[in-house]
């Protein structure tokens, strides 16, 4: 018992701060990545050869940019973006410093997830909306996105868990958070207990994200 109390008094504050940092990095960057990714995903879907407004060349170029960004390993992107990050948020460390590279890395991923979710919407429903005389923005806003929402929410859990993994990598270059604690204390200083506890915290986080998103998705899905 006393050793658990010792552990808490030694590391409790550190772990609490780490958890808060991880969660802020996670949710801020994922929210921003979705703001960008939904737009890119919708544009990719709408301009695809079988889309509502086919634009072959534009679609190919945009798809290529998305793929290219997704090809760059996150740690490389993080370092390469440092000048831009500094210009944007005045720092390259801490939660603030890691949000821009996380967004740049996650947005194209989100775009592909959104495109995938939209593609799952039956063509008939969309054509029916078109045949009703709905404009493309109206179809996107009132038919496509609401129809795809349960699938989009399932995608959110996948994105959140991937970004959680990235925050741990970002920890290696001064971003803070649980990943940073696991590396500094657990890995460099051989403090097994703290390594185990951070990993356990991350496991709990992943489970929570997955169950919450599944719950919401099932709740809103009327199919």
């Amino acid at each position: 018992m006393s050793s658990a109390q010792d552990f808490l008094s030694n590391y409790g504050k550190l772990l609490l701060q780490g958890t808060i940092d991880t969660l802020s990095m996670l949710f801020i960057s994922t929210a921003l990545a979705y703001a960008l990714g939904i737009v890119i995903g919708v544009v990719l879907y709408v301009t695809s050869p079988s889309g509502l407004r086919p634009k072959g060349v534009f679609n190919a170029v945009l798809g290529w940019i998305v793929n290219m960004t997704r090809s760059i390993p996150f740690i490389i992107l993080l370092v390469a973006l440092m000048p831009a990050t500094r210009a944007l948020v005045q720092t390259t460390i801490g939660v603030r410093g890691v949000v821009p590279p996380l967004v740049v890395s996650a947005a194209p991923f989100v775009a592909r997830m959104i495109e995938q979710s939209l593609a799952e919407v039956p063509r008939d429903s969309i054509e029916a909306a078109e045949a009703c005389g709905a404009s493309v923005p109206r179809i996107v806003w009132s038919a496509l996105l609401p129809e795809a929402l349960p699938s989009i929410v399932r995608g959110v859990s996948i994105t959140l868990i991937s970004v959680l993994g990235y925050t741990a990598i970002a920890g290696a270059v001064g971003a803070g958070g649980l990943g940073d604690i696991a590396i500094r204390y657990g890995y460099y200083r051989y403090e097994d207990e703290i390594m185990v506890v951070t990993v356990l915290l991350l496991i709990v986080l992943v489970q929570l994200i997955q169950s919450t998103c599944d719950f919401i998705s099932n709740r809103i899905d009327h199919r």
């Binding site: 008939d124 029916a128 909306a129 045949a131 009703c132 609401p146 129809e147 349960p150 009327h222 199919r223």
Partner: peptide, 14 residues
């Protein structure tokens, strides 16, 4: 010019 479809074309979430 309204249209009805073989697969109904209803929005499943509405």
């Amino acid at each position: 010019v309204a249209m009805i479809f073989q697969g109904f074309g209803l929005l499943a979430q509405k």
